[in-house]
Design a protein around this nucleic acid. Sequence first.
RNA 1: GCGGCUGUGGCGGAACUGGUAGACGCGCAAGGUUGAGGGCCUUGUGGGCUGUAUAAGCCCGUGGAGGUUCGACUCCUCUCAGCCGCACCA
Length: 828
Amino acid sequence: MRYDPGPIEARWQDVWAEERTWEVANPGEPGAEPGKPKSYVLEMLPYPSGEPHVGHLKCYAVGDAIAHFRRRNGYEVIHPMGYDAFGLPAENHAIKTGEHPRDSTERSIAAFQEQFRRWGVSIDWSREVSSHRPDYYRWTQWLFLRLYEQGLAYRTEAAVQWCPKDATVLANEQVIEGRCERCGTLVEPRRLDQWFFKITDYADRLLADFDLLESWPENVVTMQRNWIGRSEGAEAVFRCDDLELDFTVFTTRPDTLFGATFFVLAPEHPDIERLIEGTPNADEVRAYVADAMRASDTDRGDADREKTGVRIERSVTNPVNGEQIPVFVADYVLMEYGTGAIMAVPAHDERDFEFARNFGLDIRQVVAPADASAVELPYVEQDSEDVLVSSGEFDGRTPAEAKDEIIEWLGRDDRGEPAVNYRLRDWLLSRQRYWGCPIPVVHCPECGIVAVPDEQLPVELPDIEDYQPKGQSPLEAATDWVETDCPACGAGARRETDTMDTFVDSSWYFLRYLDPHNTELPFDREIADHWMAVDQYIGGVEHAILHLMYARFFMKALSDGGYLDVQEPFINLFTQGMITRDGAKMSKSKGNTVSPREYVERFGADSARTYICFMGPPERGGDWLDAGVEGVHRFLSRLWRLGMEVAERTDPADAGPDGGEGASRELLAKAHWAIDKATRDFERGFQFNTVIAAVMELVNDAYRLKDGLYGDEAGGAALRFATSTAASLIFPFAPHLGSEIWELIEGGRVWEQPWPEADPGLLSAETFTLVVQVNGKVRAKIEAEAGADEPALLELARADERVGEHLDGKDVIKEIVVPGKLVNIVAR
RNA sequence: GCGGCUGUGGCGGAACUGGUAGACGCGCAAGGUUGAGGGCCUUGUGGGCUGUAUAAGCCCGUGGAGGUUCGACUCCUCUCAGCCGCACCA
């Protein structure tokens, strides 16, 4: 007899599909269980492309284990699934093949559905959504309009990052080292009208509300903090008297204002032309600016690059001391950060120092150690003991004191004020692409931008012939669709042809799952408030910044609009590590991919899932080894055979598991130990590898004791209990086999059973192994009675022959006794 | 440069609040079952040394160096290596 997972898995999958086992009802609906606490277990929704890979298998195996564990611990678990179906890969495929992205996407979705069912993931399929379907994106558009009404969506001309290959605008987050995240092409700047979400309005709340989270990986929080990049400091006004032009700069070091010896503008700064007009080297400046604009962001972003710049024949006034300081344009100053202009303090800033050295400019030290000892310039690191020098009335103040005092002093006559600056930019959400959610506005020559009325939603994506990007959205070609009437005045108007960034779609999908068939609203507020927030979110770290921050922003914006209560969408976040093959990231080009389908067919879904959870802590990555899957498959086979043999050999009428001695007692104790161990490790978080190891130990012991290999044989009741317990504990990882063996031994459905509880009476043994140390080194292990007190344990320890040898001729200085554990005798 | 994480056998990894380092699995080895192979079952498996019919014993060992402690993979200081994120952010 041989364990053949195929028929077993198919059978249980049919049961779950026919009986709709994993569906849960909303409050007030038939089947709702208001007595139960809710738990929203959610894995990041997949982007359907081809068929699922091992990363998906890992994500859903981990999430499913959590979902099962919570269900059996009395929670009403909502565990839905959907597809993030808009996006570039499908569109690129369409460009190449001419196939409609909808067709390839639907095909892929079918493959994902088939695999998820085949994996036995406990999904509530009645809540399935896909972002590309009109009944979903209708609500994406609806939500966009609500944000628009709240003033959180706006359109403006902006210097954007343009990918020439994909012919589209990219968000900051999609530009990696100056290259398109997707295709690696160097990004170019362009000025275009673009749609933005005002995420910057929420910068402080996005920071503060980290406090509302229970458990997020530290590194994700840190990444978001850095991305938001809040810095406190001051704005100070440097005036160009010639032109009566004020330049505000942001600085985190107002204490060094007296050391500002020159002033630098970013090449993109809008006032450069005014400044240089009529100056002798205007053309030289223009040439520099043109060069800088042409240089790629990668080149400009390189901190090691030689500092270049050009002098503008103007000066500005340092507000703290009235000094006229020279003005430069240099590309090390970025237009995107602060005001695009800086005060340069070469003595206390490495970049300014380098620039000053290249251009022979004054370097004036204004902060020095308290003992006035010489320091090497630039002196950047601050010490709280430092004092200001050459700073007029502020000499002798510490930098911290000086910061506040100088800001206040400047503030008195409007030369400066405290300021907070962020690295975070507004979210550029428009894309000049076809396969996305249309932005529901029209452009009317009379009324300007007009929102499409709610009752006309969805603005459906029209079919087009040619997907090739041409620098504008391919939707421009759908003339019948583009030309429309203004909803406000009825005059001829044109539809917006940009589509939304797919991150908009995925910023609220977890709300649609809650009320997926609502035709009046994206979701009912009461239902959303019932299920939200997500109690456990699971996904890859690659979404640490983008998706997770956008969804947090959406939540806050919707909450401000009164659409729901929750501030933070994901209370607990778990980020899984990546599975590699031969130590390398899997990729089709390397040919080292692992096809879940192949392994599921060969070893069964249970083996593949259990292996993934057994590889190691799931937050870490791991290298996929065929031998590892085989090992887990061997273990599941052993469990299956154990079940078969026990079912045949024993009888339900065998005496109950309460009694027993010898081998029976030992096996029962092991089973209860495994229950206890598995439960504690589950509750600790994601310690799946040790949960599975505990079940393996139980199965090993059952094998050892069933035939009385080392003494007497375990009785039928003990064997039955051990076997069904193993099935019950392995169920969250291997749901099919767990169900099969449970049914075989106990009858009924294991998932309807509460999670087992360990019997404390069987957990505590009558004896324990006393470890005896002499001077901290283990010298003996003695069986001792569980309740033995300190003197008794000491006596036992001293009576040991080896211990005696090690104590021989020595004076005992100290004796440490940890009851139930060990004795340590210190002797000299 | 800044921030975060990780270093334990041949490999993946265990070790809860300091108390038997190496659970469990892979690999490897031996024995059993089998016509053979596979499969399955059992046993062994950190390194070194002593010892032996079988035993057993001693020393070393969690990246490295110190420290705290009766006792350290675990706590502290310094240090090395690797991975990830951000990076001219004023």
